[in-house]
Design a binder for these strands. Structure first.
Lengths: 177, 177
DNA sequence: CTTTGTTGTTATCGACTGATAACAAGCAAG
DNA sequence: CTTGCTTGTTATCAGTCGATAACAACAAAG
């Protein structure tokens, strides 16, 4: 048991990774801070002290996820700045199902004002980033975002990504993509 | 106060409508059966007795929502059986934001086995229905479903539908649709 | 070595929440 | 009217969960 002592920033990072996993699986309301603590290997009260409240932890998780998505797009655009290149990057993100599904849970929890505001802000930012990185028209960008949302809900339904549930309609939808 | 006595089926219907509203706003885990009861004007234990458990109530709500969506598509196809006609029908559904958002909450709660199974089943059914009603190719149908998912998450973020939150990127995305 | 700040824990609370039980009130038939 | 079935309520529990408080362990500095 390597129960090392870390700085608050380092431990916070571990908790954040655990939060991505947990929130990605069960969403904002459905996830217990205790489960996140267990995944991170710390006590539940410490998770709360590191982030203040469960909601602030969720918001931090959402911001982190969006940062990683935007970073993946920027990196892809450096090699080739078209929508196909960004699409490949998106498919790579699907390997970590929880990442994109956290985003979906943010959208779904938008009735909570703070979460809704963050979701709208970050989704708009990703839209603009995709459009600007690739110099695409609004129509092309919308189709890209739409396909992204379809894949994201399919990730939530566990028909794409690692260990997918077998599903005839899913394989049908994924052909020629 | 018209506190009339209804049959179990009639009262169940009222509870189901309340459940669409409540689950659409707060999702499966985030909605309290007590809130549904309040909206339906009955006591919380009665809601439970009518549907067994909160999960069974959510599943019934999900089934109902999917039935209504499929019905809207069937009706639209009777007049004109192409994707544009079904798209118009979908836009009409957006007027009742909660309806589509319940669907999204079903996807999001797919980690719960029973909910995941129902979500996959019904989503696949809608996909096949759209494709068969319009005789569209898998590619065309996929694009339709993708756009539908984009609009659904935008509905969850409250940037489309009644009383939309003003948002530059949202108006941008909705132009020429 | 002791002082001081940071990291982390255990103990515990208070509010919530789904579910059960027991009971009451309406309604139709005989 | 009373018997029996359905509709509905109040009371209440048992478990959960986020959050707070108090304390403990460790490390660096002087």
């Amino acid at each position: 048991m390597t129960r090392t002592r870390l700085t608050a920033a380092e431990r916070g990072e571990e908790v954040l990774q655990a939060a991505i996993t947990a929130f990605g699986e069960s969403g904002y309301a459905g996830t217990k801070t205790d489960e996140i603590a267990r995944l991170a290997g710390v006590s539940q009260p410490y998770v709360i002290r590191l982030f203040g409240t469960k909601q602030q932890l969720f918001l931090a998780t959402l911001e982190r996820v969006c940062d990683e998505i935007e970073q993946a797009f920027r990196t892809a655009a450096e090699r080739k700045s078209d929508l196909e290149s960004l699409g490949d990057a998106f498919n790579q993100l699907l390997v970590r199902r929880e990442l994109l599904v956290v985003l979906l849970h943010g959208f779904a929890a938008s009735a909570e004002p703070a979460i809704g505001e963050a979701s709208r802000e970050r989704f708009g930012g990703i839209y603009r980033l995709v459009r600007d990185l690739t110099n695409s028209s609004p129509e092309e960008t919308r189709e890209f975002m739409a396909t992204g949302m379809l894949l994201t809900v399919m990730a939530a339904m566990q028909v794409v990504g690692p260990n997918p549930v077998a599903c005839t309609w899913a394989t049908d939808l994924l052909e020629n993509l």
